[in-house]
Amino acid sequence: MTLLSSAQDLAAHLRPEGATVAVIGFHRDPSRAAHYVPEYLHRRGFRVIPVNPALAGSGEEFFGSPAAAQLADITVPVDIVVVFRRSDKVHGHLDDILSLSPRPRLVWMQQGIRDPQTAAVLTEVGIDVVQDRCIMVDHRSLT
């Protein structure tokens, strides 16, 4: 697999058709990108599962799903993992991403987020990676 950059490659991953998106670093504040970007994806037909340990177990639901504390708590297959965490925190989620079974087909690090070492590990095990791009902006321009 590769680090994705071509419009054709990105567009192929951004068709909802039942795709489940787990959002690491989801935020409950609708004015924050970590909320309105997943909300956009939900409105476009993706199933969105928030991942934030501070919200897990709160009883709140976002887009029809309760927040998970970590990816390992999600019991359905995840197609795309979207990361809203500082670049220096991404590597701390690597084992959690790799624990998913089946593994996601794509890990998307939002605009401003890069971790080349984690990306290299993910691509080595067959997971496509996008770094430093906004999934909402790319979805709007490609679909």
Rank of each mutant, 00 (worst) to 15 (best):
Q111R: 14
A72Q: 13
A67Q: 01
S101W: 05
R114W: 05
P66R: 15
P77H: 11
R103V: 01
L98V: 04
G59E: 09
L94Q: 12
W108A: 06
P77T: 09
V107Q: 08
D79Y: 09
V83M: 10
G64L: 04
D79V: 00
S58W: 10
F84P: 00
D95E: 15
D95L: 13
Q70T: 12
P116A: 15
F84R: 07
D79S: 11
I97T: 02
S87V: 06
V107H: 06
Q117F: 07
M109Y: 04
A56L: 05
V82G: 09
D73A: 14
I97H: 02
I97V: 12
F63H: 12
M109D: 02
Q110L: 05
F62Q: 00
R103H: 13
S58V: 09
D115T: 06
V82T: 13
A72T: 08
V81K: 03
G92M: 07
M109E: 01
D115F: 06
A68Y: 00
V82R: 01
A56P: 09
I113M: 12
L94D: 04
P104E: 11
A67S: 13
F63D: 07
D73H: 07
G59N: 10
D95G: 03
S99C: 02
I97Y: 10
D115E: 12
I97G: 02
A69M: 04
Q110C: 10
E60C: 02
I80Q: 07
H91L: 11
Q70H: 13
G57D: 01
A68K: 00
R103N: 00
D73K: 05
S87R: 06
E60W: 12
S99M: 10
H91W: 08
T75K: 15
V76I: 13
D88V: 12
S65I: 01
A69C: 11
Q117W: 03
A56K: 05
S87E: 06
R114M: 13
T75Q: 15
S87T: 07
H93S: 14
V82S: 14
L71W: 11
P104Y: 12
V76N: 04
G64C: 13
V78C: 06
R85Y: 05
R103W: 02
D96N: 14
M109F: 02
Q111H: 09
L71I: 02
M109S: 09
G59D: 11
A68T: 00
L106M: 06
H91D: 13
P104F: 13
V90K: 12
V83E: 09
Q110W: 08
G92T: 02
T75Y: 00
V90Q: 08
A69S: 15
S87W: 03
V76M: 11
I113W: 00
Q117L: 09
F84I: 06
V90G: 08
D115W: 06
I80H: 03
D115R: 08
F63M: 15
A69I: 01
S65F: 11
K89S: 12
G59I: 14
V83T: 08
E60Y: 10
D79C: 04
V81D: 01
D115A: 11
P102D: 03
I97A: 06
V76K: 09
S101I: 05
V90F: 08
G112A: 07
Q70Y: 12
F63P: 04
M109G: 01
